Amino acid sequence: MNINKLKSNFSMRAAFRGLIAIIIFIAIWEFGARSLDLIGYRVPFIGLIPPPTAVLDSWAGLVVDPSYWQSWYMSFMRVFTGFLVAMVVGIPLGLYMAVNRTFYGIAFPSFEILRPIPPLAWVPASIIFWPTQEMSIAFVTFLGAFYTIVINVLGGAKSINRQYLQAAQSMGASQADIFRRIILPATLPSIVVGSAVGMGITWEVVVAAEMISGGGSGGAGGGLGFFIWSSYVGGSYEQIIVGMISIGIAGYISSELLRKLGGRFTPWLKTR
């Protein structure tokens, strides 16, 4: 009971410190943005962006605008689709490369050649080769998470102590049992980490892809990336900041949900 109370107190203190840090950040931002009026000197960089109060006013107007929430929906669906396909393809691929040396020797060289290519470098080619802009955005979003997931799964499986595998084999365990009881549980933490990192990259990629492709087939709600770009073209700098903060919130929510889900599949890590 005391341990739970200590954990609760620690969580409250951590949340309080985070809240204080956010308040200080906003105060510095507000002062810097209004520095020319307050002290007669424009603070570099910060003095060129809208103050938080102006951003909040703009945000209040957007909350009742359906196209703003349509942008959220379009980006979320693109991220979810690309990330889900990356998980479905990347996890089995990484595990199979880890357990099969022949397949590893065939697939890994090509994988390593393609992996350093930034996902955004695929945008022009994907627009040309895929029949719709929506599919091209989904493909680029898939690439954003795919390589990170595969390399984490492969690294996690490769780091398993071979003595565990040899001990299981000596006791008569089949390859299916070894995979199900040793390889997969030992790789789950790496899958969780790779998924969380891949989710962050996916949000970065989908926003840039929406900017480049003009929002795909989303129209007025072409995604948060298109929302930022159209705000820039229209000269609404407050809305640009709103879009950037919206992406940060969306990315945080997505990664936090993944971490919570990963914690349920790896409960033994909570004891560390």
Rank of each mutant, 00 (worst) to 15 (best):
L154E: 04
V192F: 06
I149V: 15
D177Q: 14
V99Y: 03
P92T: 05
L120G: 05
I151T: 15
A54D: 11
V192D: 05
G94Q: 05
D65N: 15
P109H: 12
A98E: 03
Y73S: 10
A168P: 01
P124W: 12
S174P: 01
R78K: 14
L143H: 05
D177N: 07
I160V: 13
D57P: 00
A176R: 14
F142E: 08
A125S: 09
D177C: 00
A176V: 12
I127H: 02
M77D: 00
Q133A: 06
E134V: 02
P189Q: 03
V150D: 13
I137D: 08
V192K: 04
L184Q: 02
V55I: 12
A157T: 01
A173R: 01
P124L: 12
M74L: 14
T53H: 08
F111Y: 15
A107W: 03
A54K: 11
T81E: 02
L84F: 11
P52A: 08
V150C: 10
V55T: 10
P185F: 07
L84M: 10
P109A: 13
I160A: 03
V192M: 07
P52L: 12
S174W: 04
A157N: 03
Q169I: 02
L188Q: 05
L56H: 01
A145L: 02
L143T: 04
I117F: 02
I113R: 04
S75C: 08
A107T: 09
A173E: 01
Q70A: 15
R180Q: 13
S67R: 12
T102G: 14
T187A: 03
F146Q: 07
P66Y: 13
P52D: 09
P131Y: 11
A98C: 06
P131N: 10
A98Y: 05
P92Q: 07
A138Y: 06
P189A: 03
S67Y: 11
G156T: 02
V79D: 05
S58G: 13
L165P: 00
V140L: 09
A107P: 03
I191S: 00
I149E: 08
N152K: 06
Q175G: 08
Q175V: 05
P131M: 07
S159V: 01
P52F: 05
I149W: 06
A168I: 02
V79S: 12
I183V: 15
Q166Y: 14
R101E: 12
S58D: 09
N100M: 01
L62K: 13
M77S: 10
G94D: 11
Y147A: 06
I113C: 10
